[in-house]
Design a protein around this nucleic acid. Structure first.
Length: 259
DNA sequence: ATGGTAGACCTTCTA
């Protein structure tokens, strides 16, 4: 089973590009972030034609996540638990019922810039809620994948110039510590755990020639429970997508679970 | 040089 995560930066602005990629790569499951539309505006039929079941947690203009799967799923959860007043659509979860059930969560973790504002406070609170929810899910002792745009640079190797990002919400010591706390529940970064994985980025800003200069960062992650990590196969960053027509600023990451 | 681009959308916010 191949599981993809991709921040598409507007599903409707990107539909031709995204559909072409799905036709070529045909992942079994995909988590999409920043769809930037309400549920009713999501192009569900375009993916159903390709054989996907579709669940959407949308929002007008900003954020929004979707879960696509060729294998039927149940128990869909929309929204991250822990704050009934949170209006931002950044979390979707379901259980994929294939050869063996796999729980997949798709996340769009808040950016948090600028540091020192309520936006950074929201990011830290969201990460604390994610850790609390992940702690609950880990007690199930089942294959679990938390995939998405984490908006966190975990290590210096994940950024072209660490010094340039030290004050950024994606690379703050507190931000990195919160990601470490999440991983310390027993979650494994699929990319760094996979055999033969080389250093790679998943995001290049549209501005300042970041792509031609390869000024990238790795912020799109798939974290695996021990039961999922035991099944891990190849992990591929689809870097070439960034060079295509009307690209998202993020590229897809695909991880294989040998079910 | 505090720039640059992209997307949604009421003209500014978010990233």
């Amino acid at each position: 089973m191949r599981i993809a995560t991709w921040n598409v930066n507007s599903i409707n602005a990107r539909l031709d590009t995204v559909v072409a990629w799905f036709e070529a790569v045909a992942p079994d499951v995909a988590c999409l972030q920043e769809i930037k539309c309400i549920d009713e505006k999501f192009p569900t039929e375009a993916f159903e034609r390709l054989g996907y079941n579709v669940a959407v947690h949308g929002q007008k203009s900003y954020n929004g996540v979707a879960l696509l799967s060729k294998i039927p799923f149940e128990d869909v959860r929309r929204g991250l638990p822990g704050d009934d007043n949170d209006q931002q659509a950044r979390y979707i979860e379901a259980v994929i019922y294939g050869a063996r059930p796999v729980r997949i969560a798709g996340i769009y973790l808040p950016n948090g810039n600028p540091v020192g504002t309520e936006k950074y406070d929201y990011k830290m609170a969201w990460m604390a809620r994610l850790e609390a929810h992940a702690r609950d899910l880990m007690t199930l002792e089942e294959p679990l994948v938390i995939a998405g745009d984490y908006n966190v640079i975990a290590e210096p190797a994940d950024v072209y110039d660490p010094a340039a990002w030290i004050g950024d919400a994606l690379y703050q010591p507190r931000t990195r510590a919160a990601l470490r706390a999440l991983k310390n529940l027993g979650l494994t970064d699929a990319y760094t755990a996979a055999d033969g994985a080389a250093a790679g980025y998943t995001f290049w800003d549209y501005q300042a020639g970041a792509w031609p200069k390869n000024h990238g960062i790795r912020i799109d992650h798939l974290l695996l429970s021990p039961q999922a990590a035991d099944l891990l196969g190849e992990v591929t960053i689809h870097r070439d997508v960034r060079a295509g027509m009307k690209p998202s600023d993020h590229v897809p990451v695909v991880a294989e679970l040998k079910l």
